[in-house]
Nucleic acid binder design. Structure first.
Lengths: 246, 246
DNA sequence: TTTCATTGTGTCGTTATGACATATTACAGA
DNA sequence: TCTGTAATATGTCATAACGACACAATGAAA
């Protein structure tokens, strides 16, 4: 494969995939073959491809993830994000061929996207250049290549900022969910506890939720009602934002 | 000049420079030599240069603007932003040489920055490849090259979003200003009127302003007090944001 | 049947907000 | 010098939003 023919030079894409499970925010990470460091799924932009399209493709190719909320949040373009040493190691471990190392030795800027996906809909599977693919808690991040730690941190901050004035949850929760599950999602992203009763009042005030007749049985306690998002109002709020803040 | 030697391939930078004058939000535009369309000041990223540094350099080289608030807001990477036709015209008009046209014919993605500057501190002056440089009202934008219209529109939206939960004004207003001047700035950016009295109450509530003893005389009316920003609290609010919204 | 954990709903005092009234004052013109 | 004008400084008031918290309801387990 001749990278130089196919791909836009010096530009890569990295996708921070967020999932929510067991009261924790997780990211989907890959481990390169024979390497001991992890990475966010990434890839390159084809010469005749929109960058947004490339991001969707990368998600699909490298993490088998489709149908997600995907958002461009930052271009990482510091000169210090040099991967020469790393590339040599990749060549050494035969993850990439010596011939293609010329491509990888270029200086790259990388465009960061974050994706919100429903945890249960993703079956982590390594692609042909990774030997593992796993959900990892944000609190237990392993050692990451290059500046991927920073890329994840900045994605989280961007997500928090978005949460402040836009609805969130549609791609992180199953179709039906309880108010508590939604609140715990907010608490997890924000990293702080929210009052159960006030949260409900405020959230219902936005009108983005539809209360269902069903309840979720199973716990040794009163069965909570299920909710789903009102697509129309949800999407309108995504566009216009709330005029309030968490 | 051999662009291929010096610059990072396929990556450009465009800076939307906002200034505020006579109750209007303006942007600084350049007109290329012998061309009838205008452009936002832009440039390329050197191979050994951080993209943020490149943005600062571009501002300085092309618009003689220094000491500004500068923020990266979006990478424009659609394949439709093709400039082949435009480049041919540039060659035709001898704005660029035929030799360097190879560089310009590449597909480019462009990184958008917006800059906030104090109107009076800038003396628009065309650089060596432009034949004019002017402040232009957002409401009276001339015909622009490529997708520069979209680049400006998106910058304005990003600025509005920022305004919603961060202080703004330090780089758009002179050191000392009246409450009315600050409010009119907000009104201009938001595109809506705000209640004079409620604005003052809310703004003072943030604590980012220091009321001065001086007043601005000159009008046939009560002289308004002058204010300046409390640097420390202003900067802290820039970091953390307000927990409220305009 | 009792207990427990968690949910549904409501209250209350405080603060923030939007709408608006009134007093103040620099300058212009009589 | 006095008065009118235009804009500012400051305050009031009713309402809405918010944070803190109380208590009843209910599914399942003991």
């Amino acid at each position: 494969m001749d990278y130089f023919e196919i791909y836009h030079p010096g530009l890569s894409i990295d996708c921070v995939i967020f999932g929510f499970h067991e009261k924790e925010l997780k990211v989907l990470l890959l481990k390169m073959q024979n390497m001991d460091k992890w990475a966010v799924p990434g890839g390159f932009v084809k010469k005749d491809e929109d960058v947004d399209t490339a991001a969707v493709r990368v998600l699909k190719e490298r993490a088998s993830v489709t149908d997600v909320y995907l958002k461009q949040y930052h271009l990482f373009g510091d000169i210090t994000r040099n991967n020469s040493a790393y590339v040599d190691k990749l060549v050494d471990k035969k993850v990439i061929t010596d011939k293609s190392s010329l491509w990888f030795h270029q200086r790259f800027v990388t465009l960061g996207y974050y994706a919100l996906v429903e945890f249960s809909k993703v079956t982590p599977a390594p692609d042909h250049i990774s030997d593992s693919c796993e959900w990892v808690s944000l609190s237990e991040l392993p050692e990451l290549i290059l500046d991927h730690q920073q890329i994840i941190t900045k994605a989280l901050h961007a997500l928090r900022k978005q949460l402040k004035f836009q609805p969130i949850g549609k791609n992180l929760l199953p179709e039906k969910f309880t108010m508590t599950e939604l609140r715990v999602l907010y608490e997890t992203i924000l990293g702080e506890e929210l009052d159960r009763r006030n949260f409900q009042r405020k959230m219902l005030g936005y009108g983005i939720l539809t209360k269902l007749k069903e309840t979720r049985k199973g716990g040794a306690h009163k069965a909570p009602f299920l909710y789903c998002f009102n697509e129309e109002i949800y999407n309108r709020s995504l566009e216009n934002g709330f005029n309030t803040v968490w």
